[in-house]
């Protein structure tokens, strides 16, 4: 199955990263974000990945459909176009998809 054991495939071994992770896990979530940032910065000082970029999710949408793009949620890996399905509407009922 895809990606079994994908964790740390680069075999990074940096105890400063591990220790920042432990600190973040023990902090209030809002306070932890800056520690997670530091953990990522410390990890990336070893250049374990060649990071490229984030990708957009692209959809052809019928002109008769309103997917309310102001209420869309954050797009994780794999996307989630239906996350705001509650706000979708048919805007021109005579237009056939």
């Amino acid at each position: 199955m895809a990606g079994v054991g994908y964790d740390n495939p680069e075999y990074l071994n940096d105890s400063a990263v591990d220790s920042l992770i432990d600190t973040a896990m023990g902090q209030d979530i809002n306070a932890s974000y800056s520690t997670w940032s530091q953990a990522s910065q410390q990890a990336n000082s070893n250049y374990p990945y060649l990071w490229i970029g984030t990708m957009d999710y692209t959809y052809f949408v019928s002109d008769s459909l309103d997917i309310s793009n102001s209420t869309h949620l954050i797009y994780p890996h794999g996307g989630d176009i239906w996350g705001n399905i509650y706000d979708w509407n048919r805007i021109n009922e005579t237009a056939e998809a």
């Binding site: 374990p48 990945y49 990071w51 970029g53 984030t54 999710y57 869309h72 797009y75 890996h77 794999g78």
Partner: peptide
């Protein structure tokens, strides 16, 4: 319609 994502591409080394 296109949406920014948090879906990042990277190459493990």
């Amino acid at each position: 319609e296109y949406f920014d994502s948090v879906d990042v591409r990277g190459i493990s080394l």
